[in-house]
């Protein structure tokens, strides 16, 4: 689940040919090898098994019929992929996650940047406000979903949202069950906002505090009076690296949304949510764990993974992300 940030690009300079030749001529340094192997073996072994073997096995399984089993052997070529792309529900899931990303990313971005600016302007009590906005990040999606589903947005008249609406004479609303108009999006979006805004506010706040005060003074001397102008011409442009990093982190997190969808939209004992509010990971969970089709589930995992990888690569190419520093 880790993401590279701005500091990650630095180590990729190719070794010069001279060095390489030099290394080859040197006598083998056995103690160094021994230490190297001892120190790297655990993580290499772990990554090989849980990433490389897993992906390899998953790839093979995606070409097998594997219903109710996780063993290989029943080869069916690209049938699983064909079935996946013929399933309108999978397309719905992809469409939904793109929409979801398009909504949640700008909103989170805007609110966390706004809060960072706000907190930065506070002199007294800054720690209090920073903690207030940040502490929801300590809460799990499960707990937040519980509060949202059972108390904040439950369909009974006593829920917070319905009590508030009641003050304006509104009838109690079934926020989660109403998909047309998609009221459940209010629930889904607000829960994620509450959980993750603070985190990105911290990132912005750190970047804002790194901007030298002289820049603002110079701008004021040049006649920039309003706060908005200062923000527009100094703060925001200087946050470019952070902004790009935040956007990328938000996109990848949004693409992998699962927890709140599962916990808010699951109905009863039946498990996975209905066709509305079924992002790719929930779709895959349903296919693999619910319908026990591990071949189809693996194929889906590869399609989703490829999408995320392609997206990440495209974005880093587009913004030159990772090249800075």
């Amino acid at each position: 689940m880790s993401i590279r940030t701005a500091s990650s690009g630095e180590q990729t300079a190719p070794r010069s040919p001279q060095q390489a030749v030099g290394a080859r001529r040197r006598r083998v340094d056995w103690p160094a090898w021994r230490a190297f192997i001892l120190l790297t073996a655990p993580i290499v072994a772990g990554l090989v098994i849980f990433k490389y073997v897993a992906m390899g096995w998953g790839l093979l399984l995606s070409f097998s019929e594997a219903r109710g089993t996780i063993s290989l052997g029943n080869w069916v070529g690209v049938d699983n992929y064909r079935q996946l792309f013929n399933d309108p529900r999978f397309q719905d899931a992809l469409t939904m996650i793109v929409l979801f990303t398009l909504v949640i990313v700008p909103i989170t971005f805007g609110i966390s940047l706004g809060l960072a600016v706000l907190v930065n302007r506070l002199r007294r009590g800054r720690a209090f406000f920073r903690t207030t906005f940040f502490i929801p990040a300590a809460v799990s999606y499960v707990v937040a979903s519980l509060v949202w589903k059972m108390s904040l947005f439950s369909g009974v008249p006593a829920s917070a949202a319905n009590s508030l609406a009641g003050l304006f004479g509104q009838e109690p609303t079934a926020w989660i069950a109403t998909v047309d108009p998609p009221l459940y999006w209010i629930v889904i979006i607000t829960v994620r906002l509450w959980l993750q805004v603070g985190l990105y506010m911290i990132l912005f706040l750190a970047a804002i505090q790194n901007i030298p005060a002289e820049l603002y003074e110079a701008a004021r001397v040049d006649g920039a009076r309003s706060e908005w102008k200062l923000f527009r011409h100094i703060t925001f442009p200087l946050l470019r690296n952070t902004s790009v990093a935040v956007t990328m982190l938000l996109i990848i997190a949004a693409f992998q949304a699962f927890d709140e969808f599962y916990n808010l939209l699951s109905t009863g004992l039946a498990g996975a949510p209905g066709p509305d509010g079924r992002p790719p990971l929930v779709y895959l969970y349903d296919v693999a764990m619910g319908q026990q089709d591990y071949g189809l589930g693996s194929a889906g995992a590869f399609v989703v993974t490829l999408l995320i990888v392609a997206f990440t690569l495209a974005q880093s190419r587009l913004t030159g992300f990772g090249k800075e520093d």
Partner: peptide
């Protein structure tokens, strides 16, 4: 079976909830 039932369940949801 779940895989047989799923398309029906989804269709019902679309019909009832989204007209």
């Amino acid at each position: 079976a779940p895989s047989v039932q799923k398309p029906y369940d989804d269709a019902v949801s679309d019909i009832i909830k989204k007209n």
